[in-house]
């Protein structure tokens, strides 16, 4: 299975906001707990297919809030 990309947010509400918006744009994604290596937060992150990286990156630019970043599963 191909490694996923992980979008990290500051607060879980942002993850729900992003999930809803991405799905509306036809970009598949899912919410999962944050890998422990990446963050000590109790929250969640948004996982998506690397082929959608560019679309996700340009979508993120339009958000009214900041995200923590996007990493590949390898980095986690």
């Amino acid at each position: 299975m191909e490694k996923e990309m992980i979008l990290l947010v500051h607060t879980s509400g942002h993850a729900f906001n992003i999930e809803k918006a991405l799905k509306k744009r036809g970009i598949q994604c899912r919410l999962t707990p944050i890998p422990r290596k990446v963050s000590s937060d109790c929250g969640i992150c948004v996982r998506f297919d690397p082929q959608n990286l560019q679309a996700v990156e340009s979508f993120v630019q339009t958000l009214p809030f900041e995200i923590q970043g996007i990493i590949s599963e390898d980095e986690a």
């Binding site: 607060t11 879980s12 729900f16 919410l31 109790c42 929250g43």
Partner: peptide, 14 residues
């Protein structure tokens, strides 16, 4: 909500 990523926590967060 906002604590944990299992389905019940996600449902509450959503």
């Amino acid at each position: 909500p906002g604590r944990g990523g299992h389905r019940l926590a996600l449902a509450a967060g959503e």
